[in-house]
Amino acid sequence: MAEYLGLTVDIPANDPDHIEYLQGAGEGRLVLQRCSDCNLLRYPPGPACPYCQSLEREWEEVSGRGTIYSYEIVTQAINPAYRELVPYAVVLVELDEQRGVPDEHEALRVISSLVDGDGAPEAEENVAIGARVEAEFADLGDGLGLPRFRLSDETPEHELWQFPS
């Protein structure tokens, strides 16, 4: 059974929308669904295209590059397995692909963890809205992986913003 930080990841074989995303990550690829009819990417993966209602889709690898759209620092773990991890950053990453399509508010925004070069939670002082990030992958076993992000050395496109505490 696939596992991450003591958390069992139990995705049945007849749930392709979820398991194939994690299988892509198991191969070190960030994959999204592209609608076979209207040709738009979507996230989260799911059985229907929210833009044209088609049920036909293909998986496609994307760059894994993006910008932090929002974030939070979790200091109180809910699951006991995560107690050793706090404080940790949860980020909402806006991917570079398909920003502002099909309208100005749309973007592919992915929930993830922000980790450092060793896969440990990135330090709070380095987490900011606007920071550039790139995908990396944690191994879950059973051929599955979990996409995570780390800071990249790219120049941010706008001024960084941190919660003023």
């Binding site: 991450y4 930080l5 958390l7 990841v9 995705i11 979820h18 995303y21 994690l22 989260p44 979790v74 773990a77 809910i78 699951n79 995560y82 991890l85 940790y88 949860v90 929930i111 993830s112 963890s113 979990l146 995570r148």
Partner: peptide, 10 residues
């Protein structure tokens, strides 16, 4: 699988 492994739980 898209939220809880990242520690987003409450």
């Amino acid at each position: 699988a898209f939220t809880s492994p990242y520690g987003l739980m409450s």
